[in-house]
Design a protein around this nucleic acid. Structure first.
Length: 427
RNA sequence: GGGGGGUUUCCCGAGCGGUCAAAGGGGUCAGACUGUAAAUCUGAUGGCUAUUGCCUUCGCAGGUUCGAAUCCUGCACCCCCCA
């Protein structure tokens, strides 16, 4: 049994526990069953879910048994915690599809075949759907004093805001999550619930309920909510969330997100997200202080996380694409390779005969690829030395493109500035 | 109901008969520097052509004039003040 508590402490992953004095010893005493919940609001998890997921993984590796619960039932209600507005309800079909997709993603992170400590995945819809409203009120609702519920931050905050309000439905969310804990305790021997610090109210509600219904003592542990030093949310970009599914966020983009984490945040990320041991994290801290330009921390972070989420093959793809995007001249590639590397890049199809004879004017090419909004803009790009074909700078705006410029069977790669690419495919 | 002010290019905001594609700032885009960072500096920023121009744009529709973003008329919307 490893000392998971000590590890979580140095990583800065403990925000609050329900029993600061005894939890560490309790976890060392024997293998425990731990759970965290995930709301199936989309068909993929995103970076925001990575923390609880890796938390479960840490517990599992330390010799405990993780349960991931996807909230097929709670997702139908919507957790008011940390939300300032009433949420839209998802359809049953949508939820079922989301639950299934999320289950698949979890399989890559948690070990579902390790004997005693095998991870378990459950869906609270399975037991909640059978509950009749009256039974629920009698068995569960009876144990919830309204005054306690009203005192919870998640409720209080909403009621204080005069413009937001809160429906009875969302108010009841807490009961469902609390009952999950009791159910998991009864059927799977689960004794510890983990979650973000915004889950404190829901977690303690579950502990209270278990005491009243089953006279057992359960535990809770929350992690700090992650924010970046500039105040923005971890895992969010201007163009939206960073997802864990390769369909929504390509491995390349995922990798790049971590490569671009600022120096101020990267140390925290290494501690919180990766499995790197303490001495290695500290070595990286030192490297960053001594030789910041090497950006070892960012590379290591991106590598570890891309491998965790997308596997070795995904990491290789991301790194290959990175080499090309930030490298020099592009050599011969196949259409297939090109498509894979540039999958995030917009492409335009043009008829092949545009390349014959005089060839295609570089200005038209940039205009039609979408990289320049007019031919004048394209001309400007060339004059500014910001136009590239296959990663070679275009010096002359009289240049034309011909068959010889194809880099694969059908395509060539245009670039504007440092990072903006477009593919032209000639068919 | 009465009086006054406004509507400008992605945004803010100058211009108030020709020298206006329209100052300045922001944003954006490039380049330099760098660590695929931050900061900084430089340039660009309606379209088509080219370097001589041509076309479209200053709320909308008309009009005056050789010539209008600039003057006049009507319309729409916005703001302020007095009832």
């Amino acid at each position: 049994m490893q000392d998971i508590f000590a590890e979580l402490t140095w990583r800065g992953l403990i925000h609050q526990t329900t029993d600061d004095d005894n939890l560490q010893a309790w976890l060392m005493a024997q293998s425990r069953t731990v759970y965290a919940g995930f709301d199936p609001t989309a068909d993929s998890l995103h970076v925001g879910h990575l923390l609880p997921l890796t938390m479960l993984r840490r517990f599992q590796r330390a010799g405990h048994r993780p349960i991931a619960i996807v909230g097929g039932a709670t997702g139908m209600i919507g957790d008011p915690s940390g939300k300032s507005k009433e949420r839209n309800l998802l359809s049953r079909e949508q939820l079922a599809a989301n639950v299934e997709a999320i289950e698949q993603q979890m399989r890559g992170v948690l070990d579902f075949d390790s004997g005693e400590t095998s991870a378990l995945m459950v869906n609270n819809f399975d037991w909640m759907q059978k509950f009749s409203y009256l039974d629920f009120l009698r068995d569960v609702g009876k144990n919830f004093p309204i005054n306690v519920m009203l005192a919870k931050d998640s409720v209080k905050g909403r009621l204080e805001k005069t413009d937001s309000g809160m429906s009875y439905t969302e108010f009841s969310y807490m009961l469902l999550q609390a009952f999950d804990f009791v159910y998991l305790n009864e059927h799977h021997g689960c004794e510890l619930q983990i979650g973000g610090s915004d889950q404190w109210g829901n977690i303690t509600a579950g502990i209270d309920l278990a005491r009243r219904m089953r006279s057992v003592q359960l535990y809770g542990l929350t992690c700090p909510l992650l924010t970046k030093s500039d105040g923005t949310k971890m895992g969010k970009t201007e163009s939206g969330a960073i997802w864990l599914s390769p369909e929504r966020t390509s491995p390349y983009k995922f990798y790049q997100y971590w490569i671009n984490i600022g120096d101020d945040d990267v140390s925290n990320c290494l501690r919180v997200f990766t499995d790197l041991p303490q001495d290695e994290v500290e070595a990286l801290d030192k490297s960053r202080a001594d030789e910041p330009h090497k950006r070892e921390s960012q590379h290591r972070l991106a590598e570890e996380l891309t491998k965790l989420v997308h596997g070795d093959a995904g990491l290789q793809r991301a790194q290959r694409a990175t080499e090309i995007f930030f490298g020099k001249e592009i050599d011969q590639l196949s259409d297939a390779e090109l498509g894979e590397i540039f999958e995030d890049v917009p492409s335009q199809e043009l008829p092949r005969d545009r390349l014959s004879g005089e060839g295609l004017s570089i200005l038209d090419a940039f205009h039609e690829s979408g990289l320049a909004k007019s031919k004048g803009d394209a001309r400007r790009a060339v004059q500014e030395k910001g136009a590239y074909v296959n990663n070679v700078r275009v010096e002359d705006f009289g240049r034309t493109l011909t068959q010889d410029d194809l880099i694969s069977e059908t395509s060539m790669v245009l670039r504007r500035g440092k990072k903006k690419y477009a593919i032209l495919r000639f068919v």
